[in-house]
Structures are given as structure tokens and as C-alpha cells.
Design a protein around this nucleic acid. Structure first.
Lengths: 393, 393
DNA sequence: TATATTTAGTCCATAATCTGCACATAATCC
DNA sequence: GGATTATGTGCAGATTATGGACTAAATATA
């Protein structure tokens, strides 16, 4: 809907560069001939584009390829993980996390630092995060990687780079990007649940359509449709935690009543247990109270997900965060509720699965997002085209 | 996420043609100089592109333009409504409808035929619709319009051109497009609520972000974000009617319990009244039962919309269909419920408004959708470039 | 083993399209 | 009436992709 600019020769080339890079990213190593076939460009054009990619170190030739067919073998070209990398950052309630991911989406570095940021001052937390990031950047550069961009996951909705409201941190309207721009990198800021969903997309199940349910202190969800996140109008979509489960239920800290979070948030789940690990131990031991709590949470999740399925139409549902270890005790009730309530509307309810990424889904998704941006428009990535000329020739 | 093809010279030109056309569509009459400014193309390029548009009759020059500034006045160029038009079609439970809309989105023709299609045979209904469409096409062509494409609104979810399930018609898995392709036009098929939302976008409030709530026998909703409809994974998104309002409420025909439709569907609203007009009369007369029914429906809508706001993050909420005439009696309860429940999460709840389009929002949206497709890619519109050569030169 | 066939990748002349500048045009300003 | 300013067009030149010829390197076949 927004105005778009005309295409000139240089943007045509930039686009074709992106198309070639995109195919390399999707299809693993490919010969120039295969790239020509896939993109519809001629072999000549592909050759010149590939030459640019090779020169910049974004791609490498990885030896001859035998198709088992006759004819001259092609030279496989693939993305190079040796030169370009991105930085994923996360601020959460009780830890800071970071990772460095290369162009092939291989994780090159991870760091987690336990920091209790409940009711913290944003400046302090951000300074600490910057120190972490600086150290990681140096380390990455020592191994020949150039950090081309960064993204930050925060536990709350983000609108135009402004963290609107992070209740568990006690932050409100924090312009996070300003405070971190000393990193001298383009920095994207995004909701933790959305980035965790992307983490699951690129580092987990690899299904292109699903709803990632992030069970933390709060409950968020990130919907991925055809490989990209649905953000809604203001980036506030996916607040599964406050979907109405019981109109006259107990009050929720959001001001409503009977929200999902009241029944299935981390605090509700824990009950008497001190931690999720403890809770799992209790469940394994067959503790009545713990089992009943989980069953109630499962039913509540089933109800909220019923509404979510009707409104969002996810391809599948992936449970992550604290729900991952509790999955065996939640699965049955969620599935039963969904099946009963979706009844006539769908032949089968969306499949239900556990997240395949660990606790660091969000940082991974953050780093992966920047990779995606680079693949989508390599010509605009600032640190890609080093040297005297400032872009692909 | 899906593979995309390389850009060649002809696609560069096609894209620029679309960009220019898009600006004309958004910005009313514009001079070539203004177009050059807006698109970033040179005046020369714009001139040649505009020449193509003028020659094909898609655009017209509409006289000199005085900016009040000095300098040579420009010639205003605008979309022409005299040559290209599209056809909007709708099959609903108790009527067939149709409209012809020209490139400027002016409505050139409307037809509605009351037909009770409850438990009908698809073939019969489609044959009747085709007769209507043929007649309208002839009439449009007599006034010099060329129908360049059509879209059809149906009361049920659509997936890949297949009408999956229209409970009120009693249809299931009907390949609607096949049965209508005798029209010899490209035909898109889409859910009634989604198209009604687009109708509201283009022929109503013109806000770029909103959730259109379509109250009919069933309750659907179409979310528009930045001028385009959100469809979910399989095109089933927006089923507001089956969002859970009361987990243990009365059974719904969908198999669930306590769905919104049970409280606020047309049947529930009508209560004893014979029609919506009757109901309005009762409400105006202060009938206790009718008022109580509306209040309950309003509260239920408020609850379902609370969940919808959390999950979809609409810019505003527009009530259409039978809710339009009942708006005065629903507004208060909906607003109160939303405000109370969204409390801490948002500074203000999304604005609530009545639809500005009448009952024919869906047909209008259907015709408008085809217009949008033409604007977005004029080079590919089959009937645009008539004459010996089969495309822009 | 020699030759034909097939496929990969490069070279170069050609074609399509946009740009940049010069220029004619048409209005206002003084 | 001349200076100024802005619009729109013509033409040479730049950029990029194409298409066919050509080289390269493998297998198939005689």
C-alpha cells in the first residue's frame, strides 16, 4: 500500500543479486546452470552475479558436481559461512543472551548471562548488554567474521523500534535502539515471541506455517505464515496470554478477567513448585496437585488456542518456553479441547508439537532475521561490500 | 518465501508501469513531473510510460494544472474510467449480487437478485449467476467498458479457489471457478467477509487498518493491515463467529460450545422478531426483550473482540452487515467490555465504527480486488492491451 | 582408443531500458 | 518585454540482460 519507487538499472541488478542469493540460501549448493534454470536468468547473467558474490566472500565455490549425468560437471556454488555473520541479542526478565550466526545460519557463538532485570533501570541493563555485544563482536572478528547487523529481542510489544511496555521489566516506552546505537550497527528491535517463532522456523522444525506459543512469565505467541511473521497493525499481535478463557474468571494483572495467563502462565503452573525442573519432578512422581494444575492449564490453553485457530488459521501449533518440558502433561488436554471445539469447522485440528529449539529460540531468531534481511537485499547490507568501492560493481 | 524469478528488461518496464499506475491510483491526477518526483524515475522515463498508459486508454490527460506557482503548467494525468472495468460477484444465502466497477473505482452497474440458495445445488445457482454476469458484461460493453477480470464472494472459507465449506448453503468442496470459467475471464474466489473488508477499505472509510466484522447468518471478520487482507495459512482466518465467549455455554452448530455466534448471530439477535427491520422497530419502541438480547449480544461481541484485538491487533473495528443498523444498541456494551478488559494492555482500545458501505460491501470488494490486481501489474492484465500487439511496447 | 554427444561456463555483439543533459514551451514576476 | 521558473521531449550515452558462438570437460558409443 505504501508508495514504491521505480526500478532503475542498479536496482534491477540488486534485485537479481538477491534472487540468486535467495536461491543459494534455499537450495543449498547449486551450479551456475542450475541457478540460471531456477531464476529464469541467462547463464551469462548468473555468471556475472555469482562473480560478485564470490568476490565479496558471501559465496564460495565448493568443487565440481557430478549429477550422475553425462556432460561437463558444474561447479557448485554455496553460501559462505566464513565471512559474514550477524548478532542476535535478547533482554529477558532474568537473563541477557546473545549469539552470532553466520550466513549459512550456523551458530558460531552463544553467551548467556543471568541478570535479574525485574524493575531495573533500562540504562544499566543496556550498558551491560552492550559490553557483552562488544566482547562477542571482537571475538567474532578475530575468527574472520564481519558482523553485518544485529537484532534485539525484548519481552514486550515493539512499535517503530520503541519498546512500548514490558510489564515484567517495569519498562515503558523505552527507545532501545538509541541506547544501543553505539554498537555502530543497524539494529532491529522486536518482540521476543515473534523472534522465538522465527528461531523455531530457521533453527527448529523448518515448517513454513505455524503458531509458536512462548510460555514464559507471560504468554506470547508468534504466527509465522509462509515464512514470515504476522505483526498486526502496530506489532502488538499474538498476545495469546490475554485471550479470554473464562469471562468471569479471576482478575488478571492486565485489568481483564479470566485471561489465559491466569490459568497457564508460569506462576499459575508452578503452584507450590520452586522451578520448572521441580514441577517436572513432581509430575513424574505423580503429584496430584501438580497434575491437576497442568490439566487445568492444558484445558485453558486448548480454549485460547481454539479462538486463536479460528482467528489466525495457523498451519500448526508449536509449544515452546516452559511448555516444552511440560509438553507430555499438557498435550492431551490441549488436543482434546481443540478437537472437541473445532469439530465441524476443520477436518482436522492443526497439528500440535513441541519446540525443537531450546531456551535460546529468541536470540537465534534475532540473528536469523538479520540474515534474512541480508539475503533479501544484499546490495543494501552496509558491511558486505568492503574495500574501496561501496557496493557490488 | 517462495522462489522468485529474476528481473529482465521487460519486467523492469512492467514494474515501472505498475509504479506509475499505482501513484496515479493513490494520488489522483498528477503531472508527469510530479510522477517523476514520486517514483524517483526521470521525467523522460515517466513520459514514455505515461504514453503507453494513454494509448491503452487506462489513463487520460485531463487538462493543464496550475500549482499557483510560476513556471510552465503541467498536464494532469489521471486514471480513466472509460475503458477498463471489472466484475464483482456474490453468492449469498438469500441473494445473488453483482457489480461493475471501473478503474477509478466508480460503480457503473449494480444488480441484486433474491435467490434462496439454502441447500441448493451448486450447478443451478452458478448457472443463474452466470446468466446475470453475461447480461451485465454485455451491458457494460455497450457503454464502451471492457471487463478485464472478475472476483466472486462466497459465504465460506476458500482455499486455492475451492469453496471448502459453506454451511448455510449446504455446499462442501465446490470448485466454483471451474463452473464459472465459461465467462472466459480470470476469476478469483474469496470469502465474503474478506471481500467485504476490502469493500469497506475502498468504498467506505478508507482507513488502511481495521477489522471488518460481518454480521450475517454467521459471523465472519476480515482483517485489513496496511491495505491488504490477512488470510492466515489456508485462508481460514477471521472466523470470529466461533471464538470462545463462554467455555460452558450453549452448543453451537460448529460442534463447540459458547461460540460468539450463539450469542450474537443473526438468529440469536432476532429472537422473536421476523426481520432486522422489525427488530429495529422493537428496539426503538423500547421493547425489553429486544433490548436485553442486544445487550447480551453486545457483551458477547465485546468479549470475542477482546480476544481478537489481542491476537490480531487491528487498527480499528468496523461493524457491518446486520450490525450496522443495530449499531446504536450494540455500541455501548461492546465499548464498555473492550475498555474494561483491554485495560493495561493498550492506552486506548481500537476505535469502534459502523460500516460506511451498505449490504453490497462484498461485491464491491470483489470488483475492487480485481482493480487492485490490474493496478499492481497492468502488463499482465489480459484485456488491457488490445489491438495487434499483445502488450505494452 | 577415437569420436560423438551432452552439459557447463565464458565471450562478445546486440537489444532493451533508463539516465542526464540540452532544448523547446509556457506560464509568472518585475 | 525580458528574466525566471517549471514542464515536457529529444537524443546521446550508460547500464544491464540476452542470445548465439565458442571453449571445456565429462560420458556414451563405435
Amino acid at each position: 500500500m505504501t508508495s514504491s519507487r521505480g526500478v532503475r538499472h542498479d536496482s534491477m541488478r540488486a534485485r537479481n543479486l538477491a534472487v540468486v542469493l535467495g536461491e543459494l540460501h534455499r537450495g543449498g549448493p547449486l551450479t551456475r546452470a542450475a541457478l540460471a534454470e531456477l531464476t529464469g536468468l541467462t547463464k551469462t547473467t548468473v555468471s556475472t552475479l555469482v562473480a560478485d558474490l564470490l568476490e565479496s566472500g558471501v559465496a564460495v565455490e565448493s568443487g565440481a558436481v557430478r549429477d550422475g549425468e553425462r556432460g561437463r560437471p558444474g561447479v557448485a556454488v554455496s553460501l559462505s559461512g566464513h565471512r559474514v555473520a550477524t548478532l542476535g541479542l535478547e533482554i529477558n526478565v532474568d537473563y541477557l543472551a546473545l549469539c552470532v550466526v553466520d550466513l549459512t545460519r550456523a551458530v558460531r557463538l552463544r553467551r548467556t548471562q543471568p541478570v535479574d532485570s525485574r524493575n531495573s533501570r533500562p540504562d544499566d541493563t543496556l550498558r551491560r548488554l552492550r559490553e557483552l555485544a562488544d566482547a562477542a563482536t571482537s571475538e567474532a572478528e578475530r575468527s574472520g567474521l564481519r558482523i553485518a547487523g544485529a537484532a534485539l529481542a525484548v519481552p514486550g510489544p515493539v512499535r517503530d523500534g520503541l519498546l512500548c511496555n514490558a510489564p515484567h521489566l517495569g519498562w515503558r516506552d523505552v527507545r532501545v535502539s538509541d541506547l544501543l546505537d553505539l554498537l555502530d550497527l543497524p539494529l532491529a528491535v522486536e518482540n521476543e515471541a515473534n523472534l522465538a517463532a522465527l528461531g523455531e522456523l530457521w533453527f527448529g522444525s523448518a515448517e513454513p506455517d505455524f503458531l509458536y506459543v512462548s510460555g514464559e512469565v507471560g504468554i506470547g505467541a508468534g504466527l509465522v505464515v509462509d515464512g514470515s511473521v504476522f505483526r498486526g497493525t502496530y506489532g502488538l499481535a499474538g498476545e495469546l496470554g490475554h485471550v479470554v478463557v473464562a469471562p468471569d474468571g479471576p482478575a488478571c494483572r492486565c485489568g481483564g478477567r479470566g485471561c489465559l495467563e491466569v490459568y497457564a502462565g508460569q506462576d499459575a503452573l508452578l503452584g507450590g513448585a520452586a522451578s520448572i525442573a521441580d514441577l517436572v519432578a513432581l509430575l513424574e512422581a505423580g503429584d496430584r496437585t501438580a497434575l491437576a494444575g497442568c490439566a487445568e492449564a492444558g484445558r485453558a490453553l486448548g480454549l485460547a488456542l481454539t479462538s486463536a485457530v479460528h482467528l489466525l488459521d495457523p498451519g500448526m501449533i508449536v509449544l515452546g518456553g516452559v511448555y516444552a518440558p511440560l509438553f507430555p502433561w499438557l498435550e492431551g488436554d490441549i488436543r482434546a479441547t481443540l478437537s472437541a471445539r473445532l469439530g465441524q469447522m476443520r477436518r482436522v485440528p492443526p497439528p500440535l508439537a513441541v519446540s525443537e529449539t531450546g531456551a535460546d529460540a529468541a536470540v537465534l531468531g534475532a540473528a536469523g532475521l538479520v540474515i534474512q534481511q541480508i539475503i533479501a537485499d544484499p546490495a543494501r547490507a552496509p558491511r558486505l561490500w568492503s574495500g574501496p568501492s561501496s557496493g557490488p560493481r
